[in-house]
């Protein structure tokens, strides 16, 4: 009798463990179909470095807003610096994949020729071209 009960319990336990294993197996294999939406991430007093065609560019701002994986907005006083230039302005938008940054706010630039002031700029980094806009004053050293 005892032997019969022992076998019954053992069989029940084996079936139970097999059932748990099947359950775990199916739930582990199930593909992830749930979509996650990325929220805008904001960081204050931010500075970082970005590797682009023109080399390493240091960026910083009072507030960094990550709009999505490809777009960053540097809010408030901001700067871009690399081996060729230092751009000091505010409210600068950056498209990471296209390597484009721009701002419609006044900007000051220092490069190896002198110091420049403009009403805004568009930096096409992948083409090594910066377009300064508005009344431009470039003091040559």
């Amino acid at each position: 009798m005892i032997s019969y009960l022992r076998n019954k319990i053992l069989n029940t336990l084996i079936i139970l463990f097999l059932g748990i294993q099947v359950f775990i197996h199916f739930y582990n294999q199930k593909p992830l179909t749930k979509e996650f939406s990325q929220k805008t991430i904001t960081v204050e007093n931010f500075s970082s470095i970005v590797l682009s065609k023109s080399g390493i560019t240091k960026i910083g701002s009072e507030k960094l807003n990550k709009i999505d994986d490809n777009n960053i907005f540097l809010e408030g006083k901001s700067y871009l610096e690399n081996r060729e230039y230092k751009i000091y302005g505010s409210n600068i938008s950056i498209k990471i994949a296209e390597e484009i940054s721009n701002s419609n706010d006044p900007v000051k630039v220092i490069n190896s020729m002198g110091k420049l002031k403009a009403k805004g700029f568009e930096n096409l980094d992948y083409e090594s071209i910066i377009i300064f806009k508005g009344d431009i004053e470039f003091i040559i050293d």
Binding site: I131, F132, K133, F138
Partner: peptide, 9 residues
Amino acid sequence: LKAGDTLIW
């Protein structure tokens, strides 16, 4: 150097 519209570097 001064310019009224654009300066392209």
